[in-house]
């Protein structure tokens, strides 16, 4: 089943949704948003693509296997926690850089953790949905 409307709209929607997911990710520290919601929105974009063009096409657009995303996300999150350990603080303590970056504000390990969550949520959601779609 292919729908011209859906497949045309998806071409525009996927990049928009990815941008929106990044916005949610960066906004998340003090406001509603964060890695989890951002990751879900990004995953939804790819699922939409899979609905319009098929799972294989979506996997091509994603370029890497969702499993790799899970691993990278997990390592990111663990790494952000381990950074605190190296400076003698308990695991997962937030460390902040001293100066502000224009758009992002102060950057610290919680952002790295959130990026890890984001990547991992994309990976897990897509792994589940792709394998369900292939059933």
């Amino acid at each position: 089943m292919t729908s011209l409307v859906l497949s045309t709209a998806t071409r525009f929607l996927l990049p928009l949704m990815l941008l929106f997911s990044l916005f949610l990710l960066l906004r998340g520290h003090n406001d509603p948003g964060g890695g989890f919601v951002g990751g879900l929105v990004a995953a939804t974009g790819f699922v939409l693509y899979a609905l319009a063009y098929g799972v294989e096409a979506a996997q091509r657009v994603l370029r890497v296997h969702p499993r790799v995303l899970i691993a990278i996300g997990l390592l990111c999150a663990l790494g952000s926690g381990a950074l605190a350990c190296m400076s003698g603080q308990p695991f997962l303590t937030g460390l902040w850089s001293g100066y502000e970056i224009p758009v992002l504000g102060k950057v610290g390990t919680p952002l790295v953790f959130d990026v890890g969550v984001y990547v991992m949520v994309v990976g897990v959601t897509l792994l589940i949905i792709f394998s369900l779609a292939e059933e």
């Binding site: 989890f36 897990v124 589940i128 394998s131 369900l132 059933e135």
Partner: peptide
């Protein structure tokens, strides 16, 4: 609740495949 929902979601997804 958010944590519980996410865990529930993962398990239900697994259970669907298992039952299938």
């Amino acid at each position: 609740i958010l944590t519980a929902i996410v865990i529930g979601f993962g398990i239900i997804a697994f259970l669907l495949v298992l039952v299938h």
